[in-house]
Design a binder for these strands. Structure first.
Length: 105
DNA sequence: AATTTGACTTATG
DNA sequence: CCATAAGCCAAAT
């Protein structure tokens, strides 16, 4: 996968994040920390979130949730989108990460 | 340059 | 579902 020698908001970093997000299969989700790790920038989970906040809507950013499976604050529709794809939510309102978290082959 | 803010994480209650 | 706390790091103010 693309690696960014530099760390922060470079085109490479953003491109890598977009690439990862675009590769999340339908019906699965990923959390920010995992993406950060995949782009060779461990600890930059918050940056991933920041990048996604400015990402073009062409990417399935609704498949990215936080580590406990919580949906994006302020984006109520995200849950509907995920449920529509087959992602199951636990009774507590969080995604069942145990089942729907996607890991790269 | 210092402080605040946030699409984070883990833990605890 | 929410609240709090400590740790974390880059961006915005």
């Amino acid at each position: 996968m693309l690696k960014c020698p530099d760390i922060p908001s470079t085109a490479a970093f953003r491109d890598a994040v977009y690439s990862i997000v675009a590769s999340i299969p339908r019906g699965k989700v990923m959390n920010y920390g995992q993406i950060a790790d995949l782009v060779d920038a461990p600890g930059h989970a918050r940056l991933v979130g920041h990048v996604l906040s400015g990402a073009p809507p062409i990417y399935p950013c609704h498949r990215v949730v936080n580590s406990v499976g919580r949906t994006v604050p302020g984006w109520r529709q995200q849950r509907e989108l995920l449920e529509q794809e087959g992602v199951g939510f636990k009774p507590n309102g969080h995604v069942d990460m145990k089942t729907f978290r996607w890991s790269p082959q």
